[in-house]
Each structure stands twice: as structure tokens, then as C-alpha cells.
């Protein structure tokens, strides 16, 4: 076991876990931040996407111990009141079906739009291809990303 210091959503946290523990499980089991989802555990589906220094990252395969110098943002910390432009667009378009993948979709979309604020539809498709939605909300995800880009 090792004491790992993390900065998550602007707050300092100290957790005592095995060094190989992925950030995902530190968030979910040790910090109670369950908005970040487990689905595949092998960086294939994007449900666990968080921001590392503003860039999208799969938290399921990244040991928390490797992130002590980084600023981590999870869905809970993306905005104070759920009013990040991407969250607002997601609500406006009414994107969710079951909703399980949507936190990861939102985190990927928001990191993508930080880098590319005026993307083409092809660029949106390319960026969002990393995240699986088993319910098939892809049309609405695409629409919401485009809406968020325009609203920025």
C-alpha cells in the first residue's frame, strides 16, 4: 500500500491504495466519485474518461500513482452547477437513453472542444468514435457536440 496524493476537481486528496490501482477505482471506491464509469477496463469504450490537465484520458488503465503531478477533472468537477456548455447542450438535445456512458462522452467532448472549438462534423465523428454508446445515441451526441461548439 502507498499513500498517493492527487488533485481532483481542484481539491487535494490523499488515498492509501496499492500502487497499481487505476484512477478509476480510486475515484469510485475510495473517493465516492462514482460519476466516472467502469465498463470495459481496457481503454476500449471511453466510459471512464476524465481530464488530465485538460486532456481526455481513460482512467481505467491509468494508475493513480502516475498522476500525482496532474490536475484531474471528473464529471463531478466539470462545472459547478452542471452548466458547462457541453452539459447544457447534452440537456438541450436530450441525449441520454440509459445514460451510463454519457459522463464519459461529455468528458471526451469537452476536452475535444477545448482543443478544437470549431470542429467539422467529420472531426466530431472522429473524436467521439472513442466512446461506445450501447443504446445508440450517436446521432444526438453528434448534434450536442456541434451545439456546444457553436455556443462557446
Amino acid at each position: 500500500m502507498a499513500l498517493i496524493n492527487l488533485k481532483i476537481n481542484g481539491k487535494a486528496h490523499s488515498v492509501d491504495v496499492e500502487e497499481d490501482t487505476p484512477l478509476l477505482w480510486v475515484l469510485r471506491d475510495h473517493l465516492g466519485l462514482v460519476g466516472t464509469k467502469y465498463s470495459c477496463g481496457i481503454a476500449q469504450c471511453g466510459a471512464c474518461t476524465v481530464h488530465r490537465n485538460g486532456e481526455a484520458m481513460f482512467s481505467c488503465i491509468t494508475p493513480a500513482a502516475s498522476l500525482t503531478e496532474d490536475e484531474i477533472t471528473t464529471i463531478e468537477g466539470l462545472s459547478e452547477d452542471g452548466d458547462h456548455p457541453v452539459q447544457k447542450a447534452w440537456a438541450e438535445v436530450d441525449v441520454a437513453q440509459c445514460g451510463y456512458c454519457q459522463a464519459g462522452q461529455i468528458m471526451n467532448a469537452s476536452a475535444f472542444l477545448n482543443k478544437n472549438s470549431a470542429p467539422s462534423m467529420e472531426e466530431i465523428d472522429e473524436a467521439m468514435n472513442k466512446n461506445i454508446c450501447r443504446c445508440g445515441t450517436y446521432h444526438k451526441i453528434r448534434e450536442a457536440v456541434a451545439m456546444a461548439a457553436n455556443s462557446k
Partner: peptide
């Protein structure tokens, strides 16, 4: 709109 949108899009414990 989906009545759970707010909870879903802010990562509340729902599942």
C-alpha cells in the same frame, strides 16, 4: 426531456 438528465449529466449516483 428525460427527467434524470440533470443527474446523468453531472455524474450523480444513479446506477
Amino acid at each position: 426531456k428525460n427527467v434524470d438528465n440533470g443527474a446523468i449529466f453531472t455524474g450523480k449516483p444513479l446506477f
